[in-house]
Amino acid sequence: MKKYLRIILLAAALLLAVLFFQPYIGRVLGYAQSPFVQAGTWIKTHTDFIFERGEYTPAKFAALEQQRLSLAFEAAELIALRQENSLLRQQLAFVERRYLTVKTAEITSRSVSKHATHFTINQGRADGLAVGNPVVVGDGNLVGKISLVNQYSAVVTGITDLNLATPVSLLNTNRTIGIAQGTIGDLLNLNFIPHDENIAINDLVVTSGLEEFVPSGLLVGIITAVASDPNQPFQTAIIEPLISISDYSLVSVIINQPDL
């Protein structure tokens, strides 16, 4: 009996210690975890062809090339619009121009189930991060948002997580807006699109800027399917992210809203 009491007391003491020191444990672990994430990511990016062999056919390659070309045109249009927008804002002096502040962070661990897309990073409240800050990779590809922030680390929920919704707009003629909701898997659903909106496959999807902390124009993905049922009040579409977070070990957190 005495032995069990000792074990229970020890477990309780350990639990309290772990909970109290958790932010610091996370910080220390982060130094050890980052190289492992980098090693694993390097292996993944160099061995993907083994796991994806057979998924790429010549027809699919041709389609992807066509898609890349189409995206390049869209990107060029987007850049031109952004420049025009910037000039107009300067001329009209609507708001004082602010600059994007970005904090680079290393991924320290990842969840493995499709039911939840989370990863932890080695920057936290002490580095200026707050819940809701968008997390991007590359040239402004949105991969998630900060869902929990500790003193020296933070948890990021991926945009494909079922519990994450992001206000987005399409780079089509109507600049359709909607809500992109994660799924159990690697895709997003675009919901609440009125039937009179004309959306098409290959339309680029970017953040709309209607959410606190998240600036407009961050790339979310591309439309890969559209479902339009006249009996339903809204259309829905499937968004495929253009990048996968599993290919990256470094991310950037936008810690204030830019004026794009």
């Binding site: 975890q33 694993g40 993907d48 599993s246």
Partner: peptide
């Protein structure tokens, strides 16, 4: 902690079903 790091940082970053 060593095993947890290997499982949640290294294995979790590997391709296919290895995570």
């Amino acid at each position: 902690l060593g095993l947890a790091i290997i499982q949640n940082s290294f294995f979790a970053s590997l391709p296919g079903v290895l995570p």
